[in-house]
Amino acid sequence: MLSQDALKRIDREIAKYPPEHKQSAVMASLAIAQEETGWLSNDTMEFVASYLGMPAIAVFEVATFYNMYDLAPVGKYKITVCTNLPCALSGGYDAAEYVQHKLGIGFNETTPDGKYTLKEGECMGACGDAPVLLVNNTRMCSWMTPEQIDKLLAELK
């Protein structure tokens, strides 16, 4: 189901918690699985459930509770733009609009070539750098002026 490398990473996460609390590693395991498989399919969630010895529905609860898990396929690049108030005051909406315009898609949509998915995000804890956006859950891009956005999109091919 997952690669040896992913399992090794998951095992490292499990080791952070007392042995009887393997379930604590579920968030990290899902993140690692998602990184590897692109999104969380039912099979993936079931695999994680059995790997951690927890009920599948409990994994599903977690996967649907936290924003950054994708329970449906997303584009190669998932771009999440923060539009919360502090960001909005410094152009969060404008940045979002600009990206939408450039990609020709709205929030929660994927470009027809499957390359980009756009999401609206909540506060990312980087309001001083507004506008900010997040690429594939891991890469935070700050001060995203239209020029910066152009540059980023050119890089994300």
Binding site: L89, S90, G91, Y93, D94, A95, E97, Y98, H101, K102, A130, P131, M144, T145, P146
Partner: peptide, 12 residues
């Protein structure tokens, strides 16, 4: 005018 990066829609 308050936005730091407002871009005129026509421009983009």
């Amino acid at each position: 005018a308050g936005s730091r990066i407002y871009v005129e829609h026509a421009a983009c």
